[in-house]
Simulated scan of single mutants.
Amino acid sequence: MIRQLPLVAFCMMAACAVPDYRPVRAPIPAPQPEPAPQVNPQSAKERFLRAVEANGCEVNASNSAVILAGATLSQQDLARILQELKDEGRGSVAPDGTGFRVNTGACA
């Protein structure tokens, strides 16, 4: 039994010297902050043109409320924008005189 004691001691010491090959867990990455939504600032005129294009290319009494709400404009903004578009040649009074027709972009 005493003869086996050095062998047992040697095996115990050898077991401590064996490298540990267990897989190491990767560190949990810190959560990345969500980027803020890209806001494309548009001028009032651009918002108005997009709203008019989406509603048939003409502003009249039946769709003016929808267009103003879609473009987030007031009546004063609308009057100013219509005058600017008319001066630039990008819009005109409808032939029947009850609306305003846009002739740019998708409405050309």
Score class of each variant (00 low, 15 high):
P35W: 08
C11V: 14
N63R: 01
P95R: 14
L85F: 07
T72I: 02
P37M: 11
A65K: 07
N63F: 01
A65R: 06
Q83S: 14
E88L: 10
E84K: 05
Q38P: 09
T72K: 12
C11R: 07
E53N: 04
C16V: 11
F100Q: 02
P95Y: 08
P31A: 14
A17L: 15
M1I: 09
Y21G: 03
S62P: 00
Q42L: 07
R25C: 02
V24K: 11
R25N: 08
T98D: 13
S43H: 06
A54N: 15
G70W: 02
A94E: 05
P31Y: 08
R80M: 10
P23H: 11
G56W: 05
C57V: 07
R22Y: 04
L68E: 09
F10T: 08
Q38S: 14
V24F: 06
A9D: 05
I28W: 04
A108L: 06
L68D: 04
R22V: 02
Q32N: 07
E34T: 13
A44M: 07
E53L: 03
C107T: 02
G99W: 11
A69H: 09
A9I: 09
R50T: 03
P27Q: 15
G99Y: 11
C57L: 08
A106Y: 01
S74L: 03
Y21E: 04
I2C: 09
I28T: 11
A15Q: 12
R22F: 06
P6E: 05
P41C: 02
P23T: 07
A30F: 15
Q83T: 13
V66M: 10
G105R: 01
C57N: 07
L68H: 06
P41W: 04
L49F: 00
A94G: 05
